[in-house]
């Protein structure tokens, strides 16, 4: 069951991201996606395998759901949140997009416990909120850095 839910969610998020009026160009989107992916993979590995704060299932189907969440769903929610932030001129809407993405990431991550993918040992949703707020911050800083670099190179070429 869980694989259907998370696969459909991943598909929906990909569809939403493509359909959005995205202000990030291909290179910026790729860089933000890859940095978020690397951060998500490394942090989840440290939390699960090294610190054993979260226990992950050994059932194949549920394990694939975990991989989908870690490597597709999480970076995509971050990307959609980022895209909404960039699109908006209004500070309140920017902040709402940031908070909305963090809340959605937390809800999806916590839903893994419902499907028996995760068991929180020494972990709870407050830590999730902090983790995802930091992940969003990493994405914002990456975008700002790469966007400035891109602009500088574009100026050089003209």
């Amino acid at each position: 069951m869980s694989i259907v839910v998370y696969f459909t969610l991943a598909w929906l998020l990909i569809g939403c991201f493509i359909a959005m009026n995205n202000k990030m160009n291909l290179m910026e989107s790729t860089v933000v996606f890859l940095v978020t992916l690397v951060a998500s993979i490394n942090i989840s590995w440290i939390l699960i395998e090294e610190m054993e704060l979260i226990q992950v299932t050994e059932q194949a189907e549920e394990y694939i759901s975990y991989l989908l969440n870690r490597s597709v769903i999480t970076p995509l929610i971050v990307m959609i949140g980022m895209s909404l932030m960039i699109r908006s001129e209004n500070g309140v809407f920017k902040a709402s997009s940031y908070v909305g993405a963090v809340v959605l990431l937390t809800v999806v991550n916590n839903s893994l416990t419902y499907f028996g993918v995760f068991e929180f040992v020494n972990w709870n949703f407050i830590y999730d909120i902090i983790y995802f707020a930091v992940l969003m911050l990493i994405a914002v800083l990456t975008y700002k850095f790469y966007h400035n670099l891109y602009d500088k190179e574009a100026v050089k070429q003209t």
Binding site: M27, T30, V31, Y146, L149, Y150, K152, E153, K156, Q157
Partner: peptide, 8 residues
């Protein structure tokens, strides 16, 4: 390449 492509 431009620096942003190298980094990418």
């Amino acid at each position: 390449f431009p620096r942003h492509i190298t980094l990418l």
